[in-house]
Design a protein around this nucleic acid. Structure first.
Lengths: 429, 429
DNA sequence: ACAGTTTCCCGTAAATGC
DNA sequence: TGCATTTACGGGAAACTG
């Protein structure tokens, strides 16, 4: 009997499914009031247990017990939750393997009315909770109690907290192999080595955009995150106030939603400082550009910088970053394709750094050719947005006369274009 | 006593407040599960009633009674709802007038589990319900019951039903002066005269954009709505399947959100057929344009049409309509300001019909001048979207050679522009 | 007053009912 | 099956609460 018990104690395995559709890659975060699904599997293939194992999910089971017992008023406690319905289910035969399993669908937790001593000193996303599945059964006249718990779970009340909750999950994931499971981990969170953290960060990008971070990108992030002389990163620096994580998470979201293709193909250098951008570009020929993430926007935004040589000097310009809202309307490849400068609408972007012709890198993603107007049956004239900048130096600004040289160049270019246009025009009849 | 009773019977007046913030101008629509507020006022200024009048809101009070009494199984019934909490309140002194009043905040209805005979043959937005406020009190040993009801209320479960619900409210409003209150109005809805309907429609535009509909606009709508030979409009034509109302409501929403200014100032002709647009514009000089609502989009969209004379022929073009989603990014005035055509980015819009220079009509709403690049401290180059169309006839399309004449014109214009540009350039040093 | 947290609720999408 | 209606829930904003 004792052997059976021991086997059973470790016999249930929990596979958690996502809380929300947008959290497909983010398990271990539960939003109160939003349904989630978990599957419990009985690993010992004994058909005689069929219909014997009635499993009940309990939220924060051991925490309850501990509080009811010894340390009732001794310390502050986490928020308390419970399941809104009775989700008990009997394990049944699982089609493929023949083992016993049950899918707990429509699980849904609700916060209990706050207890008087329920005043945690960590943020809600630093509370770690557990979902435990318990079952009691008789075998050979003996009563057995077995149970299995989920990995630690962060409970949020609004989707605006997903970003913070995910930071906790990452931190916990990196520490769990070395530390014993400790639900109060964040009351005194141990630091991570940059070694460890950089690896998790790279995984995030792999998950979001099918490509991790390269050495240069990680070097730039290392500066942002704040690594101490011993190569350690502290939780409070990584996550708390105006931290690097919120910025990085915004960019992950940007990639997931609008830049998967370009990120996967490595066309986005992304994490590169403004200064380094200048250094890289000024060596390259006019029209060379690169894509980098805005360092100021917490929402995730992407800009491009390009170089223009005139008069022996290299000028590096950077466009106002594009936000998610803008990319919803026009894909980044289309922006790059049509971006124009000056009153003559010249195209300043030619080569993706180091030297890939723009259309080779992005051509396959252009939504359609500007040169072939759509003739829909609708009778409406098709149109498309073109993003245009007036650089500080333009032919029409007389206040800039001290910079007359580049203007002369523009004028020359313009005549060239004009001649070329005339040559391609059909001859008047 | 009888006099007092009679006075009291009509003594309570209900002032309903909006269900939802976006329904500020749309009372009489309640969404299940969304809180609303109502104020009940006791019109007789007798301070001795203070704290005597405990008023309770009841949903569909008389309907309940009628059903419990006689016609229980006789006919189909509307959906049933009730208030989720006890909202009883005592009337108290109302600060300004000194009269008795109470504000019922946090009222919230919930659908009852469906009764077996609850199968109405009208749509949910055609069911008319009532909120009734009842009070019982003793005066001089006599028990008095008084009550007052709201105007009929449409109960919806999703904000996607607001459009349909509002159609019912309008129809009811136009009929209520002549018909006795009838909650089953829509089981056999009487027609409205076009006279009446056109007035309500005009009011909708007055409410949404501070300007009603003029005669020409109403004439166009008359055709859309479908008026019978006797000048009557039937509910089923106005509202049911692919009806005019859904289209009109989309446009009202477009105006409310993005076009209030232009609509108020009468710069949007809006309701004008494509044919009439052609007739109006071809008489006018090149560059004259007008704004009209898309007739095909159910979502509310606006297009502009302009005329170009070349070779003695008038060509009227219309741009692909702008949707709400697009106007969120770029205001219509900015679109009009920057809209360009052809590879030379010429501006085809000059005069708002009949002859108002574009900048006079829209200039004050341009978000900023394209000619003065913003020099933010951010170090980023400002940019803005310009909408560009390639008309079927362009200098670069050799397949169009039979229309060579307009191209020659374009070429001439282009040289003119070039000369003018050269003249305004600062002289090379 | 304020920041962290929760609630509210529109608008869209998906699910459900009929 | 298709349409009518309801439910689900992300996302932004307001409201709450210490």
């Amino acid at each position: 009997q004792s052997l059976v018990m021991k086997l059973l104690t470790n016999a249930l395995v929990v596979e958690k499914q996502p809380v929300m559709s947008s959290l497909l890659q983010r398990p271990l975060i539960l939003k109160a009031g939003v349904r989630f699904t978990a599957t419990v599997r009985f690993l010992i293939n004994l058909p005689e247990f069929k219909d014997l194992l009635k499993v009940t999910p309990v939220f924060d089971k051991d925490v309850e017990a501990a509080v009811k017992g010894l340390r009732l008023a001794s310390c502050c406690r986490f928020r308390q939750f419970n399941f809104v319905r009775d989700n008990s289910k009997r394990l049944d035969v699982d089609s493929p393997g023949g083992g016993l399993a049950a899918e707990f669908a429509y699980m849904d937790i609700k916060r209990k009315t706050k207890a008087p001593n329920e005043q945690s000193h960590v943020g809600v996303c630093e509370e770690l909770h557990l979902v435990t599945f318990v079952t009691t059964f008789q075998i050979a006249g003996l009563e057995c109690n077995i149970q299995v718990s989920s990995l630690p779970v962060v409970v949020i009340s609004s989707s605006s907290q997903v970003c913070s909750a995910w930071a906790s999950v990452m931190w916990w994931n990196m520490l769990s192999p070395s530390e014993p499971w400790n639900l109060s981990l964040f009351s005194n969170p141990p630091p991570l080595s940059w070694q460890q953290l950089s690896q998790v960060l790279s995984w995030q990008f792999l998950a979001a955009g099918q490509r991790g971070l390269d050495e240069n990108q990680l070097l730039m992030l290392r500066d942002k995150v704040g690594v101490d002389p011993e190569g350690l990163v502290y939780w409070s620096n990584f996550f708390k106030n105006e931290s690097a994580w919120i910025w990085i998470d915004g960019i992950l979201d940007l990639i997931r939603k609008y830049l998967v293709d370009l990120w996967r193909e490595g066309h986005i250098m992304g994490f590169v400082s403004r200064e380094r951008t200048r250094v890289l570009l000024q060596e390259k020929c006019t029209g060379t550009f690169l894509l980098r993430f805005s360092e100021s926007s917490k929402e995730g935004a992407i800009s491009f910088s390009w170089v223009k040589h005139s008069n022996g000097e290299a000028h590096v310009h950077a466009v106002e970053p594009y936000t998610k809202k803008e990319l919803e309307f026009m894909s980044l490849p289309d922006v790059l394709c049509s971006y124009s400068v000056g009153s003559k609408f010249r195209k300043p972007l030619v080569f993706l750094y180091p030297d890939i012709p723009k259309d080779v890198a992005f051509g396959r993603y252009y939504s359609s050719d500007l040169q072939t107007p759509k003739q829909g049956g609708s009778g409406y004239v098709d149109r498309r947005p073109v993003h245009v900048s007036l650089l500080p130096l333009t032919p029409h600004s007389p206040t800039m006369e001290m910079n007359a040289e580049p203007e002369t160049m523009e004028l020359e270019q313009w005549f060239e274009e004009m001649i070329s246009d005339i040559l391609t025009l059909p001859a008047p009849p």
